[in-house]
Amino acid sequence: MNTSQQRNLIQKAGFGMLSVVALLTVLPIVLVVGYIFYQGLPAISFEFLTGLPREGMRAGGILPAIVGTIYLTIGTAIFSVPLGVAAAIYLSEYAQDNLLTRLIRLAIINLAGIPSVVYGLFGLGLFVLFLNFGTSLLAGSLTLSIMTLPVIISTAEEALRAVPQSFRVVSISLGATRWQTIRRIVLPESLPGIITGVILGLERAAGETAPILFTVAAFFLPRLPDSPFDASMALPYHLFVISTQVPGMPLKLQYGTALVLLCFVLGMNLLATTIRSRARAKRQW
C-alpha cells in the first residue's frame, strides 16, 4: 500500500469517527425527545391541561403551572424586550469604540455567564426582600428579564448590524436624522432577526427553574394567580417538584408535565427558526 492510499484510508477512518461523534451528540436528543413524547402523550387530556391539581398533585391538571409560565414569559418580555432592543440599538447605531462601550460589552458577556441560581439569589435580595415585592410573578419576571437581557441584546445587535450600511448613508444623505433612519429603515429591516432573538431569549426564560426557585415559585398552589404580586406555580418548578419532592407520584404525570414544558419550549424554538428562515428567503439584500 503506498502512502497516498494510506492517507486516504486515514482520512476515511477519521471522517467516519467524526460522524460517529456527531451522531453521539444528536442521537440522545432525538431519543430523549421521542421518549418524552411516547411516555407523556397518554397523560395529555383536557382535564390535565385545564384542571387544577388534586390529591397533593397526584391527580388532576396542571393549569396553574401552565398559566404561571405564560404569565412569567409575558412579564419577562415586557421588561426585557424594550430594554434589550434599545441597548442593541445603542451598541449597533450609536456607540463609539471607546472604553465605555467596551465596558458595556464586558458587562453583557458577564451577564450572559452568570449562573442562573445566582440570578435567583440576586432576585431574592433585590426584588423579593429589598423592594419588598415578595415571592411574586413581578419579582420572578424582573429576575428572568435581567437573565434574558444578554441573549436579546446580542441577537438583536447582530440583526441590526446585518442591515447594509448603505441604507443608513442614503437615508442620512436624504436629510433623515439618526433616529428617523433607525425607525424607518433599520428597525423594519432587522425586525425578523430581532423577533427571532427575542423568542430564543424568552424560550430560555420559560424553561429556567433556578431563578424562580426563591422569587416566584409556589410548591403547591391550586388556584390561578390574579395579580403580579401573587406567587405562582410554574411548569419547570412544578416538574422539579413532582419528580423529586413528592413520593408516589405517577410517572405518567411527570412525563406529561415534561411534555407540556417541552412543547412550550420547542414550539418557541420552532417559531423562531421559522421566522428566521422566512425572513432570509424574502430578504432582498
Binding site: 448603505s166 441604507f167 442614503v170 444623505s173 429603515i185 423594519p188 429591516e189 432582498q284 439584500w285
Partner: peptide, 13 residues
C-alpha cells in the same frame, strides 16, 4: 445639498 451615489441604493421601500 442632495447626493446620488455610484451604486444605486434604493431604500427597502
Amino acid at each position: 445639498v442632495s447626493m446620488v451615489f455610484a451604486r444605486p441604493v434604493t431604500l427597502p421601500l
